[in-house]
């Protein structure tokens, strides 16, 4: 009789725990901004593969959902995860509202410093460190000494200051031009381009405000026979000679690693890189580059792809 009573209590307590916020330590909810984006899908796949067998996961793909808030809330209630892993800014902004005391992981969130992060938030930044970017530039174009950046103080003042400090050690000089509005891009380019060997396009929503400005940047640089180095491979089609960005698979593996122990840094730099080289442009303009670096290339844009 006593035994039956104990069992009853245990069953009732388990039910209450699962219903009212006692999160399950081995459950992870992956919230993906869009599973259709190749990089996000790769990120999620590597994350799942890198998880140890002790973890169970469920996934919510936000793309195409009519009411993502409801779906997420429902899933959090039924699954009761201890960790929510967000891929992309959209997923992070949404999950943040329902996270409560759970651990929140993120990756692929553009400019994470703009996001609200608390003591239980950890992540992998979308952006590489300036010295990481410059090391790869040097690897392909060792003769480059002066690099130009146009940036907005609102979003990138800190990044540019950090870049200038870090890059001194690489014997590269950063020459920068700050703007407040995208309408100032043209004059900034005319001021900057004659002073530099290459233009470095960084992730800046003011500078890269719209497609017309992007086209203008690449046209002006080409007219002044200056190459463009970009933070994302989407700019290769506009005429960037090289782009280096984070490798989504590595980021997924890194995020899984953040579950295993308390990391030394709350937000880690991406450990893996994707390199795209515009071989079509290199051949057309006979641009001198370090051919030994070819073994590091992920994608190559050939003239047949134009």
């Amino acid at each position: 009789m006593e035994m039956i009573k104990i069992y009853k209590i245990v069953i009732i307590l388990s039910y209450l725990f699962s219903q009212y916020g006692f999160s399950q330590s081995n459950k992870i909810l992956i919230v993906n901004s869009s599973g259709a984006i190749t990089k996000y899908a790769k990120n999620a796949n590597e994350f799942k593969q890198s998880l140890s067998k002790d973890y169970q996961w469920s996934e919510l793909n936000l793309a195409g959902l009519e009411n993502p808030e409801n779906e997420l809330e429902k899933l959090i209630k039924t699954e009761n995860p201890s960790v929510i892993y967000c891929i992309g800014t959209k997923a992070y902004l949404l999950a943040q509202q329902y996270v409560e005391d759970r651990k929140l992981l993120f990756s692929a969130a553009i400019n994470w410093k703009r996001l609200n992060v608390n003591e239980k938030t950890y992540g992998i930044s979308n952006e590489l460190q300036p010295s990481q970017e410059m090391s790869f530039l040097k690897m392909f174009f060792p003769k480059v000494k002066k690099v130009g950046i146009i940036y907005s103080n609102k979003f990138n003042q800190q990044y540019v200051e950090q870049a200038k400090k870090e890059i001194q050690l690489l014997q590269i000089e950063i020459i920068s031009q700050a703007i407040d509005e995208s309408s100032e891009v043209a004059s900034a380019l005319n001021e900057l381009l004659p002073k530099v060997d290459i233009l470095w396009v960084i992730s800046d929503p003011v500078v890269l405000d719209n497609k017309d400005v992007v086209v203008q940047i690449f046209k002006t640089a080409a007219a002044q026979q200056k190459q463009v180095y970009a933070y994302s491979d989407i700019y290769i089609q506009y005429g960037a000679v090289l782009s280096v960005s984070y490798d989504a698979g590595t980021t997924g593996g890194q995020a899984a690693g953040l579950l295993k122990s308390i990391p030394s840094q709350k937000v880690e730099v991406p450990a893996g890189t994707d390199i795209t080289l515009n071989m079509c442009l290199i051949d057309k303009l006979k641009i001198d580059f370090n051919k030994s670096a070819l073994s590091s290339v992920t994608n190559m844009f050939n003239c047949t792809q134009e």
Binding site: Q132, G253, Q254, K260, S264, E268, V269, A271, S296, T298
Partner: peptide, 21 residues
């Protein structure tokens, strides 16, 4: 030990420099 798989050797070396390994 945990092995952090990265695309290429140069990424592995830089991972030490940036504190990920």
């Amino acid at each position: 030990i945990r092995i952090l798989k990265v695309p290429k050797d140069i990424d592995a070396l830089m991972a030490v420099g940036f504190g990920m390994a």
